[in-house]
């Protein structure tokens, strides 16, 4: 594995290897030493969690971080091409982690440079490190990835995270409930891909009735920036709000996940229940990203 660009490139074996390494790094980070290694963060878009968890991952393994957030004050503002910026960053660093609003940007950069490239989000296309940390979180909270019942809730149309998660879990015999307003349903091409892979799913518009059945509830924010139409956003923005009261009938092992930031879709009274797992999920991002950095830098044993 030279780069990490898309979940499509990742075999089930490689995925399991990364999950295993994340687990072992969580227990003992001292097994990997990335001192004198430099990670370049090329963030063409704002991001707090992804960028900071990458920085934390690199630094906790002894490495250093350089980089940019946004393009103001950089040569990008002067009209430098993405390829040129990336080639320079590659001379300054051992690995590039990049986020860019255009789809396919990370793949393009990976073809232009000699150092490994990690895609930390390319527009609405892929965000493989999020998918991997979600898998790690599900594995850690349930003890297995196999045969789980999962509800994916919220914006299933524009939500890149839930699309990759559905694909990432497909080999593990899941049952999905896709819960969304009608205007934000899971895209038809993804549903037909899942059918082809033999994955069973049901589409729902409300979440209440399935709560007693599920192992994982994955909630996503309905993102204003994905809507071309303000009116459409106003109509659906409060469609699914998860409260502690709503979770009364949940199974003991049920966990609520969310890629964060949340706005109001999970009320704060859920935080103190045994079902809340989204902050652990964010922490897991550090271990997963440590596993990815170590693997791509050739330090994984």
């Amino acid at each position: 594995m030279k780069h990490l660009i898309s979940m499509r490139d990742l075999s089930a074996d490689k995925t399991l290897q990364l999950l295993k390494l994340a687990e072992s790094l969580e227990k003992d980070p001292s097994q990997i030493d990335l001192s004198r290694r430099v990670m370049a963060a090329m963030f063409y878009e704002a991001s707090t969690r992804t960028r900071m968890s990458f920085e934390s991952a690199m630094k906790r393994l002894g490495g250093e971080v350089i980089g940019m957030v946004g393009t103001s004050g950089t040569s990008v503002e002067k009209g430098e091409t993405l390829a040129d910026t990336a080639k320079i960053m590659a001379r300054y660093s051992d690995i590039i982690v990049m986020r860019h609003p255009m789809e396919g940007a990370a793949r393009y950069v990976s073809e232009q440079v000699d150092v490994p490239v990690v895609n930390a989000g390319d527009g609405a296309n892929q965000h493989p490190t999020q998918s991997l940390l979600d898998l790690y979180t599900i594995l850690k909270s349930q003890g297995t990835l196999k045969g789980l019942k999962l509800a994916l809730v919220g914006d299933l149309k524009y939500g890149r995270t839930v699309h990759s998660l559905a694909y990432a879990l497909a080999p593990f015999n899941p049952t999905f409930y896709f819960v969304s307003p009608k205007s934000l349903r899971m895209p038809a091409h993804i549903l037909s891909d899942l059918t082809q892979k033999g994955v069973s799913y049901k589409e729902k518009t409300t979440v209440e009735n399935i709560i007693p059945e599920i192992d994982i509830m994955y909630v996503t924010r309905i993102q204003r920036e994905r809507f071309p139409d303000r009116e459409e956003y106003e109509k659906v923005k409060n469609a699914y709000i998860i409260t502690a009261n709503l979770l009364r009938k949940a199974k003991d092992n049920m966990k609520v996940l969310h890629p964060l930031p949340r706005v109001n879709e999970i009320t704060t009274d859920v935080d103190s229940t045994k079902y809340a797992y989204y902050f652990d999920q964010a922490e897991n991002g550090v271990y997963m990203r440590q596993a990815i950095l170590a693997t791509l830098l050739g330090e994984a044993k």
Partner: peptide
């Protein structure tokens, strides 16, 4: 929103399978 429309680069499409005429962009994956 594909990077090929923003950077001076060559587009690459791959035929999904020989029976269909669907093409996948190597970059944005659509």
């Amino acid at each position: 929103k594909c990077i090929t429309n923003a950077e001076p680069m060559t587009t690459i499409f791959n035929l999904e399978d020989s029976s269909s005429r669907d093409l996948a962009c190597q970059y944005c994956e659509r």
